[in-house]
């Protein structure tokens, strides 16, 4: 598949996703209890409206991509599709999830140091020692500022004896 076909496929999938979301919203409205109380319009009215809106908008987007193609949009997406680096995007996302998962056990300072250094490296920085130091500085400054000055709890983790 070349970039053009891929870009068009992505855009059509987006249109289908919008329609699909509309479908989910509409089918899930039946899960909302219909308790009118003292109001005339119940809690299902706006969800139904939003769901129908998604169906219409997704349909229109699909038409805009097939029958009356929006060439500017397609060209822009094609240009980006040529450049796209999925590996880097996925790595950044994975690092983020690991970072959030390790916050509690490693503690805020250490998790932040590791995340900052690794993520900067993924994004092209080649000075690991500097990045570790900056990450640590941010981590410790934020930790002390939040816990000592603002009274917001952050996990101390492995460093709990020291901080």
């Amino acid at each position: 598949m070349n970039a053009e076909t891929r870009a068009l496929l992505w855009l059509r999938l987006t249109a289908l996703a919008v329609i699909g979301l509309g479908g989910v919203i509409l089918t899930q409205t039946s899960q909302i209890g219909e308790n009118l109380g003292y109001t005339i319009i119940g809690p299902r009215f706006f969800p139904t409206l939003v769901g129908i809106g998604f169906l219409i908008l997704g349909g229109l987007l699909f038409l805009r991509l097939t029958m009356f193609p929006d060439q500017t949009l397609i060209d822009e997406v094609v240009a980006e599709e040529r450049m796209i680096d999925w590996l880097m995007t996925a790595t950044v996302l994975a690092l983020l999830v690991v970072y959030a998962a390790l916050l509690e056990s490693l503690g805020y300072v250490l998790a932040t140091t590791i995340f900052f250094a690794l993520n900067s490296r993924v994004l092209g920085s080649r000075r690991l020692r500097r990045d570790v130091l900056i990450g640590f500085a941010i981590g410790i400054a934020v930790y002390l500022f939040f816990t000592r000055l603002l009274g917001v709890r952050l996990p101390a983790g492995l460093l709990s004896g020291l901080l």
């Binding site: 950044v92 983020l96 970072y99 959030a100 932040t112 995340f115 900052f116 993520n119 900067s120 490296r121 994004l123 092209g124 920085s125 990045d131 900056i134 990450g135 941010i138 934020v142």
Partner: peptide, 15 residues
């Protein structure tokens, strides 16, 4: 550098 800038944005966003 952009690499540090975006790492920082993610750290503060998560925070």
């Amino acid at each position: 550098p952009r690499s540090l800038l975006y790492s920082g944005i993610l750290v503060f966003g998560t925070l």
